[in-house]
Amino acid sequence: MFGASGDAGSQPHWGPKKLQAALARERPELGLPAASTIGDLLKRHGLVPARPIRARGVEQHRAHSAATVPNDVWGIDFKGWFRTADGARCDPLTVSDTVSRYLLLCEIVAPTLQGVWPACQHLFAEHGQPRALRMDNGSPFGSKGAAGLTKLAVLFIKLGIALEPITPGCPGQNGRHERMHRTLKDDTSKPPAASLEEQQARFDQFRREFNEVRPHEALDQQTPALVHRPNVRRYTGRLDEPWYDADHSVHRVLAQGYIRWQDELIYISEALAGEWIGIAPLPSGDHVARFADIDLGLITQVSTKFVQFGAPRPGRAKPEQTA
């Protein structure tokens, strides 16, 4: 049938749908099978070339915990950057408590590891550290690498702070923090201040009023300062190395993000350079690589390639109540 007329029978790279359409034009008198049947015939006669299978990242979803008391979960993010009147770029880093809505930090810093980490250290020293941080997937909090980790995220993990990244494209999962951002923008940057110094002064004033003066509807018109409580989790600054169960082999990640595995170099993540990861066998014959309690990906039995686990793809999610 496929060689009955010149065009359709001489196209070895055409798929079933194209062949069906071409044959319908050339031989309208024939009763043609469905495209799926044509595809089965092609496979049966060895006319479908095998395509190489590419290792793709596996989406990893991390559940968000329910915050019930102050300092249980903090939201951390950068409000969208803008320029002050003198042309300087302004990147406000914000941190708020999920339960009390207390705005713990609103500070202009560079959106980098070198900018954020010292600000967080000072914040933790003053207010203790949360059980978990809910954050965006953008730099410096998240990446497209294994498990979405960055060097900053690794530091949080070594402090014992759980990470709760939101799904890309779903800011409503950190809705209370995002709602605060809208108020912050309206009250402090329309229009922007003359300089970064004046803009920071506006942020400081906003934080005082937001915490101590402005009633909050979701708090029965109380202020966040009245609901917030001292933190029982004190900050020691100690970065603990992760522990692994006895069935794990432990490997230090080399400077460029590789590990040595069965006489081969396998790339894991540059964010983990210098860190210890654990690798455990699975019943399938594959091995799972972990940093602390976070699964990084699989080392496959067949190809010994690393298939990383990553953040979920952008999607739609039910927004968090922001009242």
Rank of each mutant, 00 (worst) to 15 (best):
G6R: 12
K18V: 14
A21R: 14
P28F: 05
E29W: 14
A34G: 15
L42E: 13
H45G: 04
R54M: 13
A66S: 12
A66I: 11
A67P: 00
P70D: 04
G75M: 07
I76E: 04
F78H: 03
W81D: 08
W81M: 12
L93K: 02
D97P: 11
S100V: 02
P111C: 06
Q114S: 09
G115M: 00
Q121W: 05
P130S: 06
G138E: 06
F141M: 01
G142D: 04
K151L: 04
L155K: 05
L159A: 05
A162Q: 09
E164C: 01
I166F: 05
T167H: 03
C170P: 09
P171R: 00
Q173L: 13
Q173S: 06
M180W: 06
T183A: 09
T188A: 09
P191C: 09
R208C: 11
Q221C: 14
Q221G: 13
L226C: 08
H228Q: 10
R234G: 09
V253P: 00
Y258M: 03
D263Y: 07
E264P: 00
G278Y: 10
A280K: 10
P283V: 04
S284H: 07
G285F: 02
S303A: 11
K305F: 05
Q308V: 01
F309W: 07
A311M: 10
G315T: 06
K318L: 04
E320Q: 12
T322C: 03
A323N: 13
